[in-house]
Amino acid sequence: MSHNIPDRVKRRVEDILSRYPRREAALLPVLSALQEERGFLSHSDEEWAADTLGIPPAKVREVVTFYSLFRRKPAGRHHLQVCTNVSCALNGADGLLSHLRKKLGIAEGETSADGRFSLSSVECLGHCDEAPCLMVNDEHYGRLDRRALDELLEKLE
């Protein structure tokens, strides 16, 4: 299988590997580096990581599917990740999620037709003090209600 991994990613991965005692231990940062390149992890990326780290492809797939921060399909420009864990659920995460579903016309795991938004529900983001919360790409937003959410969406081009 040809993997088509750019040289700069390969160099980054070499650098990551130099900082871990065992190649296998570098799986998470290596996957992050690969995902940053294209915005998602393709089957070929997984195979390359497995090959490079010397672990079975099924083990890589386990990790990729376990963590919601890894995506297996391209995401929109703004990836909305709504926490649905305990604190957020108690503070109305379900309402936010259904509001987003209706407003964007997409379900969790989908991307809007114009490529602007993707929607996911995720587990705890570590901001229970600001529940309900969500992340847009790598930015965090808390204490949300429908109005605050609408204002936020307006700002995201």
Binding site: H43, E46, P57, A58, K59, R61, E62, T65, F66
Partner: peptide
């Protein structure tokens, strides 16, 4: 020592599976 199968996804969505073509 062939590791064709794994537990994919998490929580109540967890499932046994193998990678495409393997």
């Amino acid at each position: 020592k062939t590791s064709e199968l794994g537990v994919f996804e998490r929580g109540d969505r967890s499932e046994i599976g193998c990678v495409e073509g393997r």
